[in-house]
């Protein structure tokens, strides 16, 4: 469980990036943090594994305050995949890259081998096992970075902009994969600008603006409330836009799911044609 109590954070250069954030994320929750560039999303999630410590206020993970333990200790529990994979890749082969964290955490050699194969397979990277990570494409490098964190099976997983540079098929795989982790009761936190992706996943959405939380709730509610979205400069998903425009015909406004939309439209069509 992640507990954030009235957190303020100011960077050394004087920029106040968080201004009084309070929130609780329970075990097994799936959360998407959204908001315009510079809203403070990355700054907030960096508090969850202790990379940043609050200037004022308190952040605790499972009841332990982040100021009391090292980042390495927290990292065992909280996996964090950075926005840019080039900030972490350094090994000669993809395999070594994935083993790096496992070695840091002191896993046994046999366990490391097994975990590496598992992670490679999970993200469709097995054929690149012996390739240098620097030879891969941008999207593939991003997946290597993800695999290198998943390998140690953290309880809480934070993904900063996971969908950037992924083709549609990989995005869909990522979604399936997140749902699978959710089924295993992992806590998943994604930071993203991708409304369509969020609409398809239907997580809890936390909307940020200028260092503050402006909305927090179900995706289907937040992504269909124009006043809230305007505040955070977000355009609603396409399905929601269609239903906005149909609302004067008596259609509901809070639809973001394709299947739900299909059902409603089908019903209406049948009523007309019969």
């Amino acid at each position: 469980m992640i507990e954030v109590e009235d957190v303020y954070f100011t960077y050394p250069n004087g920029i106040e990036a968080l201004k009084g954030i309070s929130l609780t994320i329970k075990n097994g929750e799936f959360v998407a943090i959204m908001g315009q560039n510079g809203a403070g999303k990355t700054t907030l999630v960096k508090h969850f594994n202790g990379l940043l410590k609050p200037t004022k206020g308190k952040v605790s993970i499972d009841g332990v305050e982040t100021t009391k333990v090292s980042v390495a200790t927290l990292a065992r529990k909280v996996g964090f995949v950075f926005q840019n994979p080039d900030h972490q890749l350094f090994s000669e082969t993809v395999e070594d890259e994935i083993a790096f964290a496992l070695k840091n955490f002191g896993f046994k050699e046999t366990v490391i081998k097994k975990r590496v194969s598992w992670a490679l397979n999970l993200l469709g990277l097995t054929k690149y096992r012996k390739t240098s990570p620097f030879m891969l494409s941008g999207g593939e490098r991003k997946r290597v970075a993800l695999a290198s964190v998943l390998a140690w099976d953290p309880k809480i997983l934070i993904l900063d902009e996971p969908t950037i540079g992924q083709d549609y098929q990989q995005k869909e795989k990522l979604r399936q994969f997140i749902l699978q982790l959710k089924a295993q009761r992992k806590t998943i936190i994604i930071v993203t600008h991708d409304v369509e992706f969020v609409a398809e996943c239907n997580p809890r959405v936390i909307l940020m603006r200028e260092g503050k939380i402006v909305a927090d709730g179900e995706a289907s509610k937040i992504l269909t409330t124009p006043e809230v979205l305007n505040q955070a400069f977000i355009v609603p998903p396409q399905i929601a836009q269609i239903f906005f425009q149909l609302s004067d015909l008596g259609f509901p406004r809070n639809i973001i799911d394709i299947y739900e939309a299909r059902e409603i439209l089908l019903k209406a069509i049948r009523r007309k044609t019969m």
Binding site: L51, S70, A75, H87, Q88
Partner: peptide
Amino acid sequence: EEAQTIMDAQKARGLE
């Protein structure tokens, strides 16, 4: 600045 980010990324993977 980039060095700082990289340090953060590796610390997040358990580097001490």
